[in-house]
């Protein structure tokens, strides 16, 4: 059963069965559950806090979730292959610092520096992917080591100093408000999510990525160059991590080495929360871009709402951890229900 549906993207519309079955499937899907949860929490927060739906809060919510969704997407592209990428944070910070360096030290115009930053992300992703493919070791241990190496080299080269000479045009992106409440950063993220959906749904490369994650041996036998695909996934992850970090640069107006915490570890939890809540299987081969977007948005909204409820900033992390736990448990229960009813 699972072998049957692994190659196909989980989507309410992709099934060719009759309409009722499709709708039933959608109501039982992870994405629908997330939409319900998001709607429920919006109501709860709107009633119990003041100013949750104010334009300013919506703006900051959109801006924060833009970054968190991007971090989740970055992890998702590697999870698709059945791997993990612990170096997401370290790669992101390296890309941001490369961007800052190109502008401040080399004096390049920011669009070229932007490409340079993303190129840095892709290059680091290539190193990860190449090492994983060449050594045949699990990406957990490789990216654990490279996370330490990337971050260490970055801190060594920058002397832990920030680059503050970010052009106003670029940092204006972080402050700009469309129709008083929408951040352009969120639009960038949603465009990326749409592009990824298109990649996994309609392109040969995207299908090959899913196949390589579902069963590397089978993919290899059907003529897919699995090694190359895995390297590509890691590079994609690097570019997306770079995007997330550059958005933070736009928001802060500076490229700061500590913006993802020690070794970039602060990004680990948001990176996994999005995809895992969104129903992307850690074993690989199955992906839900919409789920990741919704999952990361839910997490951002919850942290913001909990802060506004004044539960205490220090407890938010505990809630996020509990949420991850509850989410995986619910997903497990839903799956076993679907299996029993022969719906999955």
């Amino acid at each position: 059963m699972s072998a049957q549906d692994t190659p196909s993207a989980p989507s309410p519309n992709s099934s060719t069965g009759d309409g009722r079955q499709t709708w039933l499937r959608f109501f039982l899907s992870n994405e629908f559950g997330l939409i319900l949860l998001i709607a429920a929490f919006i109501v709860i927060f709107a009633v119990s806090t003041r100013g949750f739906l104010s334009p300013f809060n919506l703006f900051s919510l959109g801006r924060n979730s833009a970054v968190n969704i991007m971090i989740g997407l970055s992890m998702m592209t590697v999870i698709v292959t059945g791997g993990l990428n612990l170096a997401v944070g370290a790669m992101g910070v390296c890309a941001a610092m490369a961007f800052g360096w190109l502008i401040e030290v080399l004096g390049l115009p920011w669009p070229i520096a932007l490409l340079g930053g993303l190129g840095m992300g892709a290059a680091l992703g290539f190193i990860n992917g190449w090492t994983v493919v060449r050594t045949g070791l699990h990406s957990f241990i490789i990216t654990l080591a490279t996370m330490s190496i990337f971050f260490g080299v970055m801190i060594f080269l920058t002397r832990a100093e920030s680059y503050r000479a970010i052009p106003d045009v670029f940092s204006a992106l972080g402050k700009m408000k469309i129709a008083t409440y929408l951040s352009p950063l969120l639009l960038v993220t949603l465009a990326c999510a749409l592009a990824l959906t298109w990649l996994y749904r309609f392109t040969v490369t995207g299908r090959e990525m899913l196949a390589a994650g579902a069963s590397p041996a089978a993919a290899e036998l059907s003529g897919i160059r699995v090694g190359r695909i895995i390297i590509l996934c890691h590079m994609l992850s690097g570019v997306l991590a770079g995007m997330a970090a550059l958005m933070l640069v736009a928001r802060n107006g500076a490229a700061i080495p500590s913006m993802a915490g020690q070794l970039g570890q602060d990004w680990l939890l948001p990176a996994f929360l999005g995809p895992v809540l969104g129903g992307t299987l850690l074993q690989g081969g199955k992906v839900s871009v919409l789920g990741t977007v919704l999952g990361a948005f839910l997490v951002t909204m919850l942290s913001s709402g909990l802060l506004m409820l004044q539960i205490g900033a220090f407890w938010v992390q505990t809630f996020l951890g509990l949420m991850l736990l509850i989410a995986v448990l619910l997903d497990k229960a839903r799956r076993s229900y679907l299996t029993r009813r022969n719906l999955a």
């Binding site: 992390q317 505990t318 996020l320 951890g321 995986v328």
Partner: peptide
């Protein structure tokens, strides 16, 4: 739960650190 130790300990990492 039968969920991988990676996900569980990631969640409890956050819970214990949060406490």
């Amino acid at each position: 739960t039968g969920i991988s130790a990676f996900v569980i300990t990631l969640a409890t990492l956050s819970i214990y650190k949060g406490i």
